[in-house]
Amino acid sequence: MAAPKPRVKVPKTASAGEVITIKTLISHNMESGQRKDKDGNPIPRQIINKFTCEFNGQKVFECDLDPAISANPFFEFSAKVNESGTFKFTWVDDDGSVYSSENQIEVK
């Protein structure tokens, strides 16, 4: 598996107090721990177990993921934007790796 690469879609601008839609996608196998390899040995679980979205350091949305989330986890959710600033998205892997992405938004 290539290193997980996040993709995020956030509008570049919004009006003050607007509720915007955010979409995120990350490449990840989400190995469930339920599968076996060719020799019949269980393949150990390795999933992204947590996703968070913060805006200017404050929590906007969070998700605890279980192995029933499909490969290449996708989220669509909303955020209320009152001021210009930075969205920070983080994905936490079972192996401890953290993948992240930052996106600016300008409130006009």
Binding site: K23, L25, F74
Partner: peptide, 12 residues
């Protein structure tokens, strides 16, 4: 093309 999961591999 954002929600299409195949686009992750196109980016690769």
């Amino acid at each position: 093309s954002f929600t299409n999961p195949g686009m992750l591999e196109v980016e690769e």
